[in-house]
Nucleic acid binder design. Sequence first.
DNA 1: AATGAATGAGCCTTCATTCAT
DNA 2: AATGAATGAAGGCTCATTCAT
Lengths: 199, 199, 199, 199
Amino acid sequence: MKKSDRTRERILKAAIREFSRNGFNGARVDIIAQRAGINKERIYAYFGGKSGLYKKVLFKVFSGIVESEESLVSFPVDRPECLSQALVDVYLDFLTEHPEFWRLLIFENLDGGKNAEALRCMSRPSFEHIQSVYRKGCAKGIFPADVSFKSYLYSITALVFFAHSNRITLARTLGLDLNKPSAMKKLLHECLYLYWTPR
Amino acid sequence: MKKSDRTRERILKAAIREFSRNGFNGARVDIIAQRAGINKERIYAYFGGKSGLYKKVLFKVFSGIVESEESLVSFPVDRPECLSQALVDVYLDFLTEHPEFWRLLIFENLDGGKNAEALRCMSRPSFEHIQSVYRKGCAKGIFPADVSFKSYLYSITALVFFAHSNRITLARTLGLDLNKPSAMKKLLHECLYLYWTPR
Amino acid sequence: MKKSDRTRERILKAAIREFSRNGFNGARVDIIAQRAGINKERIYAYFGGKSGLYKKVLFKVFSGIVESEESLVSFPVDRPECLSQALVDVYLDFLTEHPEFWRLLIFENLDGGKNAEALRCMSRPSFEHIQSVYRKGCAKGIFPADVSFKSYLYSITALVFFAHSNRITLARTLGLDLNKPSAMKKLLHECLYLYWTPR
Amino acid sequence: MKKSDRTRERILKAAIREFSRNGFNGARVDIIAQRAGINKERIYAYFGGKSGLYKKVLFKVFSGIVESEESLVSFPVDRPECLSQALVDVYLDFLTEHPEFWRLLIFENLDGGKNAEALRCMSRPSFEHIQSVYRKGCAKGIFPADVSFKSYLYSITALVFFAHSNRITLARTLGLDLNKPSAMKKLLHECLYLYWTPR
DNA sequence: AATGAATGAGCCTTCATTCAT
DNA sequence: AATGAATGAAGGCTCATTCAT
């Protein structure tokens, strides 16, 4: 690996940290440079500027989830009744381990998605597979036939994501203490049970 | 109404707009003053500074939802099977009409809740009532008995909120077009149906 | 006394305090108004502005010493040997009781005396008398004949004034603690003794 | 010498001028930058801000007098009768050539010595020597035995300093024209003569 | 005469960006 | 490729002053 590539990596890593913590506006180029242990000007030479770096950060971070989802391609087709739990587990782990992901995602949404093109070329290999499992579930009567897969996936995502993105205010408004991962797991387990309790 | 009160109102209104659009860091005092049609200094005279104004903005905006929830205090106790839909309707309408609310809420969460004390003295009058309806629903077997009311309310909130806060990226990742309110209503309706479909 | 005159007085008093503490630049019109318990605008109506008020302050404060010196007009002509001590006593008391005087004087000097015209019309009634006492002292051999009265008075003033104006740094550079009036008295007594010790 | 050091010097020089003329409050960062021919931001990069620069200015300027006093370490021990004149000469020259010194000193005193810590680590190498000469003078009967060295040094300092710090008002109150250095020298010579005239 | 409301200029400071070496 | 030095355009805030009532 070339030295310049290592410099790039260091910058990117520091940038992910800074951007995900403070958003584009709040992030400071100086801090990134300092934490990366490089000279500020390198950022401009390598990434063209703060914006360019931000885009690269978005792309890199958003790519991460694709990798995480890969484990789902091998989800057994004949167990649709476990699908929801499996999805929650994967996403929950990912978001907990990668706060930079959901933070940047939120920042992007707040920003109107100016740089959301970074999400463009992200293919989601497991998508098709999961969808077919869901359809199997519909056929089996586990999921209602007239609810689209999109809606289903939306609901799973929402439940997991919201617990992270709104953790702080949830403590105030609902008295939910989600600081410990176990508390989050329990909450989401209850939510799933709430919905797919055997009746 | 005194002239100064009108000025205060104008500032607050402009501040809500600016802060909810850009967050605390991104908001510009000059822009607020300009839009309010007043001299910048008034902000410091009336609110003590950018921070003071921000806190007032938070409090005012966050107070709004309490008012919206008031309609729920008269929710019929004997109809727990309609509770979820009613809650979704109230929250959905509110968030759609008040994007400044969820935006500020999100910004607060991203910011670590430094100013979340603004939420402190906000009582939620309908909370108790809704809770008793939920318990009735549990007794009737509509909701699982071993799922707490908090978890239930969390799930409703998450489903409604996420559609707003992540609208833009949802279009990319799930191909969900939630620009029209009707689309959102439909999505959430499906989610509810997904969960409480009669089986 | 008219009400407007009382307002004037209150403003002046507050202004003396503020100007003497912080100088012209450091003084705040708001603080003066607040302490005077009046509306800021009155300062402009009565004194034309900050500068106008400052000039009035200077004049009023500088007038004070003339009054203090009046006690000296009755200094006994036949006791020139006690003159120095008497002068020191008068000035020392005055400066100790009126820090606003020496502070404003210093500020004026630092400012290049832009407003020193306030000192213009200040006649010093005791001046002539003291001078004649001094001359008597010269004749008696108490003071050297070829030292002008001006120089003599300068030396007395310098010794007393410096202890006030440089009190703080004197503590550091000479280890002199002049916080208590008695300490100052002792210092100046030693100085006089140093100079006119009977030899 | 590095380029940045030269910039530092330019800033410091301009700052000494500006601060000594207008005090901390009255000094303008813009003016300093302009006169130094540099960008304002450099001041914050190099000195941390206005305050940081001010402290550096104090330290640098106050260091000057120590150097000036060094000539006194070689003052002949057997000539105490010339001590006063020698001290006056040294201080008088210094203050005349370095008005920034006494101005900053005065400003510091007026300001309550908030930054007087800059004087902390300033040792005065000649102090001990002068003191021993003074004691010799006491033994010889030139100085009164019961007057402390501190008081003696105070009086010398006061006489020299006051002529500078109050030059402008002295012209008005005593009719002393101290604009020319020779006039000051004459005045102080008279003062010394006044005190240690051979009797 | 008196007050609250408003203004505009200016000040300290920060930050993204570029230049020179 | 890399660094230290430098810049200009804001941004938040304050203050003396004036206006309207």
